[in-house]
């Protein structure tokens, strides 16, 4: 029994890692652009298919494929920023619809390029670590955990210590005041879109061998990500990480001991409870709507 619990904890840490990367990217985009990016799940999908194309298709090394995936999806983020998010900055619902349009385009491209069937990718490594008696962590999952820790730390340092990071936070707090200080809004949104999309891409690329990509895999991930960013308080990076960890643990434990549908239900009810008690999420400011 204790092995099962320990194993579930390890699985929860893995789930928390990829969920927090996705959620942080979404929050970053929301903070600077004021738009909920509905296509975020499809950016994750694009990252996964980069690995399908480069690693499975062209036999490039796995990590080369991952890095290319991150940059490629980051560039997709720039395309989105340039094509419509910039024009729709003060129009959140318009941005939502445009990102839904982009989501449909990305899905169609994936269907045209790779077909609707699941793509199976051979794992890049078969090695695993035995943490305790019978508690296993495959290297494939370890990569995701390490990547989450490294990237989130890097992001934290970037936002707190560098001038760009300060400027970005200023934009998230008050766009007009930031612009008055001579911060180039377009440049900041470009950086935020690149980082936010790139994070989704790297998660998709790293988890590709674990999840068998399909063109519609973004759907479930975006739903989870929405729950997480709302529980954390929209626009709160720390909140997103904390909520991702909470949600991952609850969801993984309930899935292991009951089943997936109950886990979804428990997750949603918990989220509603949080919102009923504190209608702006765990870390959200009280007066902001």
């Amino acid at each position: 029994m204790s092995e099962l619990i320990l194993q579930t904890i390890v699985n929860s840490i893995y789930a928390a890692s990829y969920m927090s990367l996705i959620a942080v990217g979404l929050v970053l985009i929301f903070g600077v652009m004021g738009v909920i990016n509905f296509a975020h799940g499809e950016l994750y999908m694009a990252g996964a298919y980069t690995v399908v194309a480069l690693y499975s298709g062209l036999n490039l090394p796995f990590f080369v494929a991952v890095v290319v995936g991150m940059v490629f999806v980051g560039l997709l983020g720039l395309v989105m920023e340039y094509a419509f998010f910039r024009a729709l900055r003060d129009n959140p619902l318009g941005g939502l619809i445009a990102s839904i349009g982009f989501l449909l385009i990305l899905q169609t491209v994936a269907v045209l390029g790779f077909g609707v069937r699941m793509a199976h990718i051979r794992p890049s490594t078969q090695e695993k670590i035995e943490l305790f008696d019978g508690v296993l962590l495959t290297h494939q999952r370890l990569y995701v955990i390490v990547a989450a820790i490294l990237l989130l730390t890097a992001l934290y340092i970037f936002l707190r210590k560098t001038k760009f990071g300060w400027a970005m936070r200023a934009c998230a707090q008050d766009t007009e005041a930031a612009a008055l200080q001579g911060i180039s809004l377009n440049q900041i949104t470009r950086i935020a879109m690149f980082i936010g999309a790139g994070l989704a891409g790297v998660v998709g690329a790293l988890t590709a061998p674990l999840v068998s990509p399909t063109p519609y895999m973004g759907h479930s991930i975006i739903v989870t990500a929405f729950i997480i960013i709302v529980v954390g308080g929209i626009g709160q990076l720390e909140g997103a990480v904390v909520a991702a960890i909470l949600y991952a643990f609850v969801h993984t434990f309930v899935t292991t001991f009951f089943d997936g549908v109950v886990a979804d239900m428990v997750g949603l009810v918990l989220m509603l409870l949080v919102l009923v008690v504190k209608p702006t999420g765990l870390f959200g400011a009280n007066d902001r709507v």
């Binding site: 419509f84 024009a87 729709l88 318009g94 619809i97 445009a98 349009g101 982009f102």
Partner: peptide
């Protein structure tokens, strides 16, 4: 999707 983007733009 393209129609949606065009229409909101």
């Amino acid at each position: 999707g393209a129609v949606l983007i065009a229409s909101v733009l």
